[in-house]
Nucleic acid binder design. Sequence first.
DNA 1: GAGCTATACATGACATGTCACGCAAAACGA
DNA 2: TCGTTTTGCGTGACATGTCATGTATAGCTC
Lengths: 160, 160
Amino acid sequence: MTDSPWLDAGQQRVWLAWIRLQLRMTYEINRQLQADSALSMADYDVLAGLSASAAGRLPISALANHLGWERSRVSHHVKRMATRGLVAMAAAETDRRVTEVTLTDHGLGVLRSAAPGHAALVKNLFFGDLPGAELPALADSLERVYAHVLKNGTLPPPPG
Amino acid sequence: MTDSPWLDAGQQRVWLAWIRLQLRMTYEINRQLQADSALSMADYDVLAGLSASAAGRLPISALANHLGWERSRVSHHVKRMATRGLVAMAAAETDRRVTEVTLTDHGLGVLRSAAPGHAALVKNLFFGDLPGAELPALADSLERVYAHVLKNGTLPPPPG
DNA sequence: GAGCTATACATGACATGTCACGCAAAACGA
DNA sequence: TCGTTTTGCGTGACATGTCATGTATAGCTC
């Protein structure tokens, strides 16, 4: 039995591919969003997160949890987005400690105009050469790993 | 070519799992490296990149290309690492424009002490619940996507 | 209801990443 | 050989992310 911390050959192959792909995809997505919609990936994630919520409005903590960010990061970032008119911030009625972040009409408009290009990039760049037959197995593996990370990681799990 | 830019159901499932997993893994790795070795993931990548090269020494451009970073980012980052004694910088003999980054003994020592913990985290967190039988298919898919991204992306491909 | 603790954020200092620009060495062309 | 272009980096200004800490509100205990 090997208590060795090192990865075996099969794991190394997966890990190397994972790291490389992750780096490239992040770069390409950021680049495209910036060029086409003047949004960073972080901006997009916030807008998408808010639009996915019932009222287009979420407390900072809920948003942080949903995105897997630290709260102070959300706080800073959302504040900057507010100066650009993409979101608005207001104290909640029921609990005065809570700051609710709201998607503005402008923010929603920007998101709607950015979404098709973003989706197209993902579809072409990530899925462009991936046979549909491989999708279920890939999703299974990724979901399995994700579940394990949630269970054993240090960050609190998201709502779902 | 499909007309709609939107992802189909199978693609959406993969993409959601991908995004979530990527966020969590980045967070956990950064956290562990910081706590155990006072290194950021970026620091670790630079050290690992240098140690993988023949002489533990690379020009900034080569390092940038290898890591998939922009050159100025490497320039800034390496400069900071130099003040911590992890690497050293010097003009190349043959081409005076080129700055070569060298792994110092201290840097190598830090890398060697950090590597087992890092590998263990990856092994436990990412591969802990992933059956060995799924590895080849997963690697195949990731490598396939990676190759397609390299071919169709905007960033120049790495040496290999 | 008077403290005590916990929660939800905001903030400032600082580390890091990006972008536009500039410089100097090398390569090239007339 | 002299001027032009290309290449490889460094730099400053600024955007972004993290950490430690501060503040106000809510909940809890007696």
